[in-house]
């Protein structure tokens, strides 16, 4: 059916991008428990504030309710999930099997990731898998959809999983000169859309995009620029100094510091509010700058453990209301 109407997956995200909308995606981190209600609550906060929501897969290598399971709960809440899958925890058998199930249960968007190393998480003595890398995962899923074959080459005799296939890009990781080519490899492997790492250094991202356009990739793949609100000056400094592949300019760290400077330390609530306000302000400014860059097809708002943030940012950036599916089909 999807083939007949020209869509690869027919997901809401795919339809909106195809229709030329500037899309907004959010992010939902599943709980470290079997409490599905947490997902329902977060989904309700995100509903209507973005077009689809990434569901992280044991992010930072900490065991959480699975991304597929959480994605199904989101669907029940009327929120379209982008299920993330990492190469760390599953071999090619488990990946295909789980993704067949995800598709059968209604998931249509998939983000293929390498995965954080297990040494960062709460099971550092675990054995990692990495049977496939993220490019090979993208390639496998594209072949399942477009050629109706399993990774081994055997034909899929029934319905094939037709995902809108996403991949991540970190323009700030090294070597910088290689990054546009890594994106090229992901596109050639079959990626339909890209979500980038958090962007704070717009100048460097613009240079990355210039090179991406030189390779013509902006016309072959939808690129969603990643943003996320800084919540405290401490978080800003930590991300600047300690997180590999992350660039936070000093000016932004200083703005976060200045935001709470005149508020007495004892008044924690007021200081937190001031910091969060500044964080949102910065994010909105970043979105305005990123929208101007040719080839940016949307924004991915990563508001970790602050799901309300997505709506606040989308509102202030003039990205609400989000188009409805009905409107879309009228076009």
């Amino acid at each position: 059916m999807s083939e007949a109407n020209g869509y690869k997956s027919g997901s809401r995200l795919e339809k909106l991008l195809r229709a030329g909308h500037f899309v907004v995606t959010g992010e939902l981190g599943p709980p470290q428990s079997a409490d599905g209600e947490v997902i329902c609550q977060k989904a309700r906060l995100l509903k209507g504030k973005c077009d689809a929501v990434n569901i992280t897969d044991n992010q930072t290598a900490i065991v959480r309710l699975s991304s597929i399971g959480s994605g199904i709960i989101c669907l029940q809440e009327g929120v379209e999930p982008i299920v993330q899958m990492t190469c760390r925890d599953r071999n090619r058998l488990a990946m295909q099997s789980d993704l067949l199930a995800a598709y059968a249960l209604g998931v249509r968007n998939l983000l293929c990731l390498t995965g954080d190393h297990q040494s960062f998480g709460n099971h550092p003595t675990a054995k990692n898998v990495h049977d496939l890398d993220s490019l090979q995962l993208i390639h496998m899923m594209a072949k399942m959809r477009d050629e109706k074959v399993f990774q081994c080459g055997d034909p899929i005799k029934g319905a094939e999983p037709r995902f809108f296939i996403g991949a991540a890009a970190n323009p700030f990781a090294d070597p910088f000169d290689w990054r546009p080519y890594r994106l090229l490899k992901k596109v050639e492997a079959g990626a339909d859309f890209i979500q980038t790492q958090l962007i704070y250094n717009v100048e460097k991202f613009a240079e990355y995009m210039r090179r991406v356009r030189e390779l013509g990739l902006h016309e072959r793949v939808y690129i969603l620029a990643g943003v996320g609100p800084l919540k405290t000056p401490g978080m800003a400094r930590y991300m600047r100094d300690k997180v590999p592949g992350m660039e936070v300019p000093d000016a932004l760290v200083e703005r976060m510091e200045a935001a709470g400077r005149d508020i007495p330390k004892e008044d924690k609530e007021a200081r937190n509010a001031a910091w969060r306000e500044e964080g949102i302000k910065i994010t909105v400014e970043l979105i305005e700058q990123l929208r101007q860059i040719e080839g940016v097809a949307g924004i991915h708002i990563m508001s970790i453990e602050w799901e309300e943030g997505v709506g606040l940012i989308a509102e202030r950036a003039g990205l609400l209301p989000r188009p409805t599916v009905g409107e879309l089909e009228d076009r």
């Binding site: 190393h117 990781a173 090294d174 490899k185 790492q197 590999p244």
Partner: peptide, 28 residues
């Protein structure tokens, strides 16, 4: 650290691996 076959992951920083700055990024 992740036995990747298609180039460095997003954790490659200044030629070092995200796992530990004592580890050189093989793909770098």
């Amino acid at each position: 650290s992740k036995q990747l076959l298609n180039g460095p992951c997003g954790g490659s920083h200044d030629g070092k691996c995200e796992v530990n700055p004592d580890i050189e990024c093989a793909w770098h």
